[in-house]
Design a protein around this nucleic acid. Structure first.
Lengths: 134, 134
DNA sequence: CTAATATTAAGAATGGTTCCGATTTACTGT
DNA sequence: ACAGTAAATCGGAACCATTCTTAATATTAG
């Protein structure tokens, strides 16, 4: 995923192009790690002082629905990151301090057999602290 | 984990015995599945009409710290269940409707190698709907 | 350019959870 | 059994992240 991919996904789905959306995408493209809505807002307040929570949340959720962002819940707060360029299904090691991730290629689901359950989803995440945050 | 185990853990740690705590524990002992605080409150309101959220949340959190309950976050809400009697480290298949679980003995961590990360925790959960809730 | 439609700001509302002060209750030692 | 004290509870306010509402503004398609 990169910015121009994201912009064409938006266009293809009838969403409008705005400077705020571009800045949001640029932020995620540069950071490549999990960010909370609050962190995103703080990053953007300098350029858009009147920016509202709603704009952030609405766009984060639109982007997530379109597959531009991935989200996960860390400590009661939603966090978002640019969808990984890593090909195929994978999981993450996540730094609880800065949100940086490392990809794990193996998926435990391949080894699990569950009867009498209609499986809809699964979550495998490893938490810790990266080199810089330790 | 059973009720008398739980009561002695409470006693050993200087917590007091109350009827509400016993009812809470009885509820979890009977249900053996993930329940939200709201669900717990509803179950207990019939016996204790004036029961406050605070009492529920405080006790759920005390019990969790003592290892009497396990908790997980489902759809933005904390859910709690009696600590599994299943021996050793394990994971769960969880019904998103009723909170019923099935244990998974294998842990994906055994096959994962992560360098430059101080691992503190991990989460592997499978979500779906059980037989009765499908 | 214009109409149609999406986006936005600002703040109010929501839902889950935690905090607070006052009161009640359970345990301890006598 | 009883008083003292520490913990538990109630009731409601406060809190935080998130979502909704309304009116105004900006973008796109034609």
């Amino acid at each position: 995923m990169n910015i121009s991919d994201a912009l064409s996904i938006l266009k293809d789905n009838g969403f409008k192009y705005t400077n705020k959306r571009e800045m949001l995408l640029t932020l995620f493209a540069n950071e490549r790690r999990y960010l909370s809505a609050k962190t995103v807002l703080e990053h953007m307040k300098s350029s858009y002082p009147g920016l509202s929570f709603d704009t952030i949340y609405r766009n984060l959720s639109v982007f997530t629905e379109l597959g531009i962002l991935e989200d996960t819940e860390l400590d009661g707060e939603k966090h978002f990151r640019f969808t990984c360029s890593t090909v195929g299904h994978h999981h993450h090691v996540i730094c609880l301090d800065c949100g940086k991730t490392r990809s794990i290629q193996s998926c435990p689901m391949s080894e699990v057999e569950v009867g009498n359950f209609a499986i809809t989803d699964h979550k495998f995440e490893i938490y810790g602290y990266c080199n810089e945050c330790q």
